[in-house]
Simulated scan of single mutants.
Amino acid sequence: MTEVATNGELLLVGCGNMGRAMLQGWLAAGFIRPDDVHVVEPAEALRAEAAALGVRTYASAEALDAGFKPATVVLAVKPQVMAVVLPAYRSHVTESVVVSIAAGIPVSVLETGLAAVAAVRAMPNTPAAIGKGSTVIFANEHVSHEQAERVARLLSAGGAVHSVEREALIDAATALSGSGPAYVFHFIEALAEAGTQLGLPPQTALALARETVFGAGALAMAADIPPAELRRQVTSPGGTTEAALRVLMENDALKDLLGLAATAAHSRAVELAGEA
């Protein structure tokens, strides 16, 4: 039996940007066959995009076969509607491991809506669409070893997978890796804008900003020394980089700004949990 055959049927609830990115990753990695994937998505346009990938699609939970018992269920709906959505799937998840990627939604909400279910709370990020993402997971006590391994395989199609022992740390990961790509995208925007202000053509400035962030990130991943040492290696005394870093590092300006940003994201994640 091949590995893909051991993964069983999968139900994806919600196929917006993140859900579709994850689905594309699973199919591209050969984690699961398209005809073993069932997608519930009420939006017709998004449902059509999912169907184009060769998976089975449904407009609502009520359209699923009454006896449908998928091995894995992935919940990719907005946090604000999670509690309302869950009861419709209670009869389908009695033998499933349920994975939620909704920010701020604690495992207790899943357990309330679905009863004593094997539940995993996960926080992926958008680079998972190209296999370069980071996902942090927390599993409740009902998750078996086999289910935990299956979930890790599933999420590893999008990149690295990290497990935490305390659920509260998921909110911290949300502030770092979950929201982090947006911070980097904004940094690229700002760096490109700085280039245009210095006289570079906009297209050239944007290309240089993208390539610089990509290259620096790849070097940081490949190097066996910490980023601080990489920074020191490229900073010549009295040179241009030192002049720039003096602005960014004086009074911990950039460090404090990122700290404030991450704290705001963390606080919102905690608020979402309370609202749930």
Rank of each mutant, 00 (worst) to 15 (best):
V39D: 00
Q24E: 15
G30T: 11
A48M: 10
A61D: 04
N17Y: 00
N7R: 15
V40W: 00
A61V: 04
R47T: 10
A29T: 09
E44Q: 14
S60G: 11
R20F: 14
A29K: 13
G19S: 02
V13S: 00
E62Y: 04
V55K: 05
A63Q: 12
A28H: 13
F31A: 06
E62P: 05
A5T: 12
L46W: 05
R33A: 15
E9L: 00
R56Y: 09
D36V: 00
R20D: 13
L12E: 05
H38I: 01
G16S: 01
G54I: 09
L10M: 14
T57M: 02
N17M: 09
A50Y: 08
G19F: 02
G25E: 04
V4L: 12
P42R: 11
L27K: 04
Y58V: 05
Y58F: 15
L11D: 00
D35H: 13
G16N: 01
L23F: 04
L53N: 02
T57S: 04
E49S: 11
A50K: 06
G8W: 14
L10K: 08
I32F: 12
G25M: 08
L46I: 07
R56C: 12
R20E: 14
P42K: 09
V37N: 06
L11R: 03
S60L: 12
G25R: 05
T6M: 07
E44A: 15
V40A: 07
P34K: 01
A51W: 09
L46K: 11
L10A: 10
A5L: 15
R20P: 07
G8K: 10
E44P: 02
Q24C: 15
I32E: 04
G19A: 03
M18Q: 12
C15W: 05
Q24D: 14
D36N: 12
L46S: 15
S60C: 07
E9M: 02
